[in-house]
Design a protein around this nucleic acid. Structure first.
Lengths: 350, 350
DNA sequence: TGTTGGCACTCGAAAGCGGTGAGTGCTAAT
DNA sequence: ATTAGCACTCACCGCTTTCGAGTGCCAACA
């Protein structure tokens, strides 16, 4: 069911106009704004057809047409051409990302911030998926009797730590010995291959009494497992209130309510990433429109994400959430640029 | 200009009714709901008086009265009696705070969460003011050539760390020696007494070449200074949208916009704390109502904070932001209870 | 077969309008 | 100082009217 050329143009024009004006667009105004070489009656016929095919719909009988989710989908998949950013825009983004920050987490946060600023939407980032990164160092520092700090240094330059409880009577020297033994045996292992058993066997050849060992090893293990937990960072939620699309208090509340459940959002982003990966994605971005999003209250939103990389095995996501009535071309090109800059900067860190 | 007894009762009744119904309250309905032993005409006179004194005002000529900021102020300062929580409420709060968490930051976060849940408002917490805490340990861990991790252990059981850049050719042993020297000299010092000079002189008696030293010391110093920077955590912003008081999109946007600037909010909380401290506060809570709040868009809110303590010298704040048309008594008693529980749990940690 | 002008029809948005009722201030009597 | 009474105000509700952009359909045309 291919659309003929003019129908494509019509759909494209409807999306463009609707995005620009937030008014349902009618056959007359289409003729005025774009120079189709046909009459409004002809367009009316085309529009009726497009509606039958599910690309557009009318809010009520006597109004213009509005793109449906499917219409937007067609638009982003084959109608729009991605535009390039002006030099000034590029500079602005670059200035914000390539700052003085040289910790990966800070860098990612600054990219997220820039993304929200430049698009005016909600932006988000997922922490890097560290499962596949490997342990470069693990140190257990005695803080005081009964309390220690486990410090993990991972490939890709990430450092994680966790305060843990340990048996009171463990001495400083025992701890150093133990820490060394664990490190020697786990060094170079990817996080997802480390199990409690691995950790326990790593400390076999120390002569520390077993009952003391047990707890420390378990805590070290939890510290490692905690390191590869995903977390999400969201920014600019309030900006959604600026869009007429959410001027109904109810919608706005649902939306912000859902976004406040960061675990849920994180899960969804993760799902998107997995789907894209398993379907052999070709694009540099992933996109979900309106009802395609399974999160409550995001029916009027679009969700666009991209993947950043830290080294060969570690990656994460950045993304934006905006009204589905958005200028997809601009947003995507902006996100793409932010992503590329972020990747460049991350590479410098390693 | 003291209010006579009945006028006090009238003001109190107006606040109570208005909080409960969100409708301007008139003389007739006052008579109905409360049993004043006088006629509505008498109350009208009293109300006219109260209005002249600035405690109440009318939204428009032919409507009932609404408390002014000054009215609320009078109410919280001398009219309301703080009620006690039911056993069930106490249990609910206790269950949420005294969890398995045993890191101070986590504990504070969980208290903040509970606060938002139980009040239905925005809640917030400030990180502990660590200026007065003293250094228990400082370790500099070599991560890889050119990169190290500075780990600070502070009194009150707080651990902070920061990744820093160091000269490439600094060896592991040099680092250990240096780290030891710094620690020996700085141990026990309150953070706010540590200056760059202190740090530099702490490393005098190592035989490491000066140019190498300089950068490390500077980085150690910045790590220390960074540790006592204040940060704020906000939760439940979206809940504000549930209140009819912010049903105008414009107000809601202003409010959430302001709250999203966490630096600004943190500054304000800090200011509140300082004012309270310097004026010899008596209450266990601080409160700002409506226009008293100097943040933009919070004219219809009240801001209530309390202070939590970690050890003798370190403290921070928790608080809530809700519509100024709130049940002050309940909110205050809840916050007070959360604070007490939090303090108990924090004490266990040290 | 695709295109066009014409026309009756639809329906939301905006504007106008009168009634209702809770509330007020004022005054004169208690 | 308190009260009953009364005229007045004004937001709110529901109703009707008008307006106009937009539609679907039809008959005519290339």
């Amino acid at each position: 069911m291919e659309l003929d050329d003019r129908k494509k143009r019509v759909l494209q024009a409807i999306v463009d106009d609707y995005v620009a004006t937030n008014e349902p667009v009618g056959s007359k105004s289409l003729i005025e704004r774009h120079n189709f070489q046909v009459s409004s009656a002809t367009l009316r016929n085309d529009m009726a057809e497009l509606e039958k095919l599910g690309f557009i719909e009318k809010p009520h009988t006597s109004a213009g047409r509005v793109p449906s989710d499917r219409g937007y989908r067609e638009y982003v998949d084959s109608l729009m051409k991605i535009d390039t950013l002006s030099a000034r825009e590029q500079e602005e983004i670059e200035a914000n990302i390539s700052g003085t920050v040289d910790e990966a987490a800070e860098l990612i946060k600054s990219a997220t911030h820039t993304l929200s600023e430049t698009t005016g939407f909600v932006s988000l980032s997922m922490s890097p998926r560290l499962r596949k990164s490997f342990l470069k160092q693990i140190k257990i520092l005695m803080i005081e009797p009964g309390k220690a700090l486990v410090v993990l240094v991972l490939s890709a330059g990430v450092v994680k730590d966790k305060i843990v409880r340990i048996p009171n009577f463990l001495t400083d020297e025992q701890m150093i010995k133990l820490s060394g033994a664990i490190e020697k045996n786990l060094m170079g292992k990817p996080l997802d291959e480390i199990t409690l058993v691995t950790v326990e066997s790593a400390a076999k050849d120390t002569e520390i009494p077993n009952p003391l060992l047990k707890q420390v090893l378990y805590e070290a293990y939890t510290a490692i497992k905690q390191a590869d937990q995903l977390s999400i960072y969201l920014e600019g939620e309030h900006k959604m209130l600026a869009f007429p699309d959410f001027s109904s208090l109810g919608r706005a509340r649902d939306l912000l309510g859902t976004l406040s459940d960061s675990g849920m959002v994180a899960g969804y982003v993760n799902e998107m990433e997995n789907q894209a990966a398993s379907s052999g994605k070709k694009d540099s971005y992933m996109i979900r429109i309106g009802q395609e999003i399974t999160l409550e209250g995001l029916d009027d939103c679009s969700f666009i994400t991209a993947t950043y990389n830290m080294g060969d095995t570690v990656s994460g996501n950045i993304g934006v959430i905006g009204p589905k009535r958005m200028d997809y071309s601009r947003v995507i090109s902006k996100m793409d640029f932010v992503k590329r800059k972020l990747n460049e900067e991350l590479k410098k860190l390693t």
